[in-house]
């Protein structure tokens, strides 16, 4: 695993040296800014329902999910697919680095980029503290960021797997987006089945509900188990896909 930091640093630099990284950041902040502003204006109405702004901010609208899915798919689409297209993957895989190191390095870089996207949103918390009568609680806000980190991390791993399956960036983006949506929609099936264990299964993977919990300040070990499992599975599958290419 000695090569992981080197690979991660190289990939992370690539994000911030490329204009695309900033385009993603700008679009991401635009979407999040709209969501935040909408909630601020809605919750400042006299007849607004109870609840904290950041509770709704994390997963409260479809824009949140579009932003998370969009940036995770965009952040991972080129990681392996571009190397395959440009022919740099084979030299990388024949170098004295393992597939696990390559995958983990690239994954950590994408995770670093994802975290960097969210850092500016801390400014929203500062704005909120300036305008609310009561100081917003840090616990639910921290839980909201934790949930976003874990769900984003899972989608990045799925995106990396999609990127390893094709040599076309656009195809990788679409695959990642479709995979992530499919996983998200699994939870919605909870209300459409009558079998008890199927209901329980779909409830367990219900990402909307998981994010709702995190937003309220609830950290459930079941959510942690599922998100870590999804991440681990996707990364492992990516390693196996690369191993298969190495053997080809």
């Amino acid at each position: 695993m000695v090569n992981v930091p080197t690979i991660a640093a190289r990939e992370l630099r690539a994000y911030f040296y490329s204009p695309l990284g900033y385009v993603v950041l700008a679009v991401f902040l635009l979407l999040q800014g709209i969501v935040f502003w909408l909630f601020m204006s809605f919750l400042s109405q006299p007849g607004a329902p109870p609840g904290a702004v950041m509770q709704y901010f994390f997963g409260g609208t479809i824009l949140f999910w579009i932003a998370v899915l969009g940036v995770t798919s965009a952040a991972t689409m080129r990681l392996v697919a571009e190397e395959r297209r440009s022919g740099t993957l084979e030299p990388l895989l024949t170098a004295p680095v393992t597939s696990s190191e390559v995958v983990l390095g690239k994954y950590l870089a994408s995770l670093g980029f994802f975290v960097a996207l969210w850092v500016p949103t801390l400014l929203y918390v500062a704005i909120l503290r300036g305008y609310a009568d009561a100081r917003p609680e840090w616990g639910p806000i921290a839980a909201g960021y934790l949930g976003t980190f874990l769900e984003g991390g899972a989608f990045l791993a799925v995106g990396l797997l999609a990127s390893a399956m094709t040599r076309n960036q656009l195809v990788a983006f679409i695959l990642a987006f479709v995979f992530a949506w499919a996983i998200m929609l699994l939870g919605v099936l909870e209300n459409l089945v009558s079998s008890e264990w199927l209901k329980a299964t779909f409830k367990h993977v219900h990402l909307f509900r998981q994010m709702d919990d995190f937003g309220k300040g609830i950290v459930d070990t079941r959510h942690l188990a599922f998100l870590v499992s999804l991440t681990a599975f996707s990364l492992f599958a990516t390693v196996k896909v690369l191993d298969a290419r190495r053997g080809a």
């Binding site: 902040l29 635009l30 999040q32 800014g33 709209i34 935040f36 502003w37 601020m40 204006s41 919750l43 400042s44 109870p50 609840g51 904290a52 702004v53 509770q55 500016p120 400014l123 929203y124 704005i127 909120l128 305008y131 609310a132 009568d133 009561a134 917003p136 609680e137 639910p140």
Partner: peptide, 23 residues
């Protein structure tokens, strides 16, 4: 938890300017 926001119209515009445009 019910955080009451006390925001005037102009303050809302300022927030919009920062969050939606400047950032």
């Amino acid at each position: 938890e019910h955080i009451k926001l006390s925001i005037t119209g102009s303050q809302l515009w300022t927030i919009g300017l920062i969050a939606v445009l400047l950032m």
